[in-house]
Design a binder for these strands. Sequence first.
RNA 1: GUCCCCUUCGUCUAGCGGUUAGGACUCGGGAUUUUCAUUCCCGCAACAGGGGUUCGAUUCCCCUAGGGGACGCCA
Length: 517
Amino acid sequence: MSEVRTRFAPSPTGYLHVGGARTALFNYLYARAQGGKFILRIEDTDQERSTEESYHQVLDSLKWLHLSWDEGPEVGGAYGPYRQSERLEIYAKYAEELLAQKKAYRCFCTAEELETKKAQREAMGLPPVYDGKCRNLSEEEIQKKISQAMGYTIRFRCPSGEIVVDDIVQGQVRFDTSLIGDFIIVKSDGFPSYNYAVVVDDHLMKISHVIRGVGHLSNTPRQIMIYNAFGWPEPAWAHVSEIVGSDHKKLSKRHGATAITAFRDLGYQPKAFNNYMALLGWSPPDGKEFMTMATLESVFDVARCSKSPAMFDVFDLSKAQDVEFAKLNSHELEKFLFAKSKLNWLSNQHIRSTADDEYIREILPFVKAVAVVPADEMDANNQRLRSILLSLRVYLDYYQQIERYIGDFYTPFEIKNVDSSARQFMKEDFFLVVAETFSRLIDIDKESFTASQIKAKMEETGRVSGQKGKNLFMSLRIATTGKMEGLELPVYLELLGYDRVRERLKTTIALARKLRE
RNA sequence: GUCCCCUUCGUCUAGCGGUUAGGACUCGGGAUUUUCAUUCCCGCAACAGGGGUUCGAUUCCCCUAGGGGACGCCA
């Protein structure tokens, strides 16, 4: 069997969002699973909307997701160039061929003319197809119009009949070509139209499998007709379902179609995000949904893709009436995230299974952004910072969440910040327990202020004071953190360090005196 | 308007004529944990509706409803 070659062919007319990214992912995974090649091609034939900025954004997003392409921009390959705007001569050459064989013809109708005719046909309840006015112009008429400098497009002469798309995901879908009509393959600016350029490129680039959104299904008969006209073999088709937002509407700018880079900025790991996207419309044969990239790259198969649309259920869109997600920064965006989404669950699993050094390296920029850690301690090798981050990872769904926890370890403790529920604990025995523990804790050598030592002292306090369990531990927890939840207390205190613990306890005891007066 | 596609727990889905309709996330309960989180148990929860075909339909066919997509000198 010949080599599997898939491609992702974005048009650089905006940022890459989840829909496109998942298509890229599926193509990438399928190529990897089949031991084939993944090709990136830029479809920038729309001169008005394509931008260089968007081109770079798309590439950046793909790079962040680690969807590396074997051929394409920046890496080259044997079938380049890989930007359609650089392949104009190729399209022109093949268009000439079709023209010579009368499989295509020049059309001199103007855009306005066509618009009027289309409106008329619609009003009459006819399908809005081209009426074929220029279909049979004589050679003389054509030459005359060209010499008059009339602009023209090139239309494909659409044969009548039925076209069957044999699709890996959709099955066999039939189309009546009379509903299609002679469509344009070369625009009046000389640029190829989408349906024509894809075919030429996919053929020349030896693409074996076309995996794309089901929105392209109705384009496929047009493309098949072009393959037939050239006598080229069709690739295998796989049209996967679209992705909708939590309001069941197709993802759009105001419906959660966030740029992929937003997830990078929030601190999701690419492997976690890929894992989640892979589950949108596809499921692994063994049902195990938490997967590494290596697993995905070996088990993915388009044949297991679902036809029904999948919901990208990550944002609470009910809170986001008319909010343009693309314009939000990562902190604003965070407010719209469902805290308990499957993405977050998967992401937490991935963070916890990341190697320590890798985890520290990845999270450090986010820690730095919070700006509470002193500059001289902002270092991957700082033992205390490292221990703190390692202890906190179990709480994190994405790295930006570190800002909720990191401050406790670096900013001064203030009694006014004590949670209201914790305040209820601050009475009678509370201060006695705190004072008892304090006297024992400061007994420990500064150097051996470790979790096990601390625990021993606390137990000792319990024996002497008669306090135990919740009363004992919670009192101390509140006196040192002002909160009723958090890391295991001895560990927390060790991470806080001798000096801070001492200081915080003194603060609390001072408060006790003040209250007694 | 025309054509095409879709419809299984709230969500992602498994299923490919005979299953107590399975799993995952969420949610509820319990155990472990000095607290939260974790972990581990248990539980709630679905075949859009109506006709066929069949000994038997979630599965095959038709209709209805709902949803999506396509009908461009956009891709």
